[in-house]
Amino acid sequence: MNKKALISTQQLIKHYPVGGGKFTALKDINLNVISGEFTGLVGPSGSGKTTLLNILGALDVPSEGNAVVLDHSIGNLSHKQAANLRNMYFGFIFQTYNLLPVYTVYENVEFPLLLQKLSHTERDKAVKQALEWVGLTDKIKSRPAQLSGGECQRVAIARAMVKVPKIVFADEPTANLDAENSHNILQTMLKLNNDIGTTFLFATHDEKVITYLRRKISLNDGEIVDDKVI
């Protein structure tokens, strides 16, 4: 049975102005990602992984071509619509965790739910569940500065997963972690992918991540050079 694509791009191009001219970061990207995938955009630095991830995550817009995510054409969304799409359906995990330093672990994880205007009871239940998924229920009152890198990234995963999003975009999630923490994080994400069915899309050049991927889309100089299911 053919599953409907959650993400679909056609002839997607992204230019950036550089000096008087322009730099093409993505060239003619055609891509489909279906629900439940655990897929990685793989390639060296400057290959366009993060740019593509940002466009698919509605944080940026294509210069030409089309990117449709969850039936929304990214290039045609208003700021408000894009924000709503990110808030309701996307989760983000960043290389540098991007936790809010003045918030506790609980408050960081709760943050996306506050934007969804859920009740206190609903938020509390979801936050505790998410922290249980990543094994951080004992750190609920800690602040990011009191946590290790691995713990911070687990909080970031909990924050991304707390609203049970359709897609999680993870940009170099293990780049700042040691091997052991990297494997723990990836196992956690894989487990969530299996248990909840959330689609994961990585941007990475970390071999440790690549071994966990079920589909590898290789980019080089802004072009897809290889796309294979492992």
């Binding site: 944080l59 408000k80 924000a83 990110r86 808030n87 983000f92 960043f94 991007n98 330093p101």
Partner: peptide, 14 residues
């Protein structure tokens, strides 16, 4: 700035 970017990524409007 990072916090602002993160807030926007998490679904806040500017």
């Amino acid at each position: 700035q990072k916090e602002i970017g993160t807030n926007i990524a998490l679904g806040m409007t500017r």
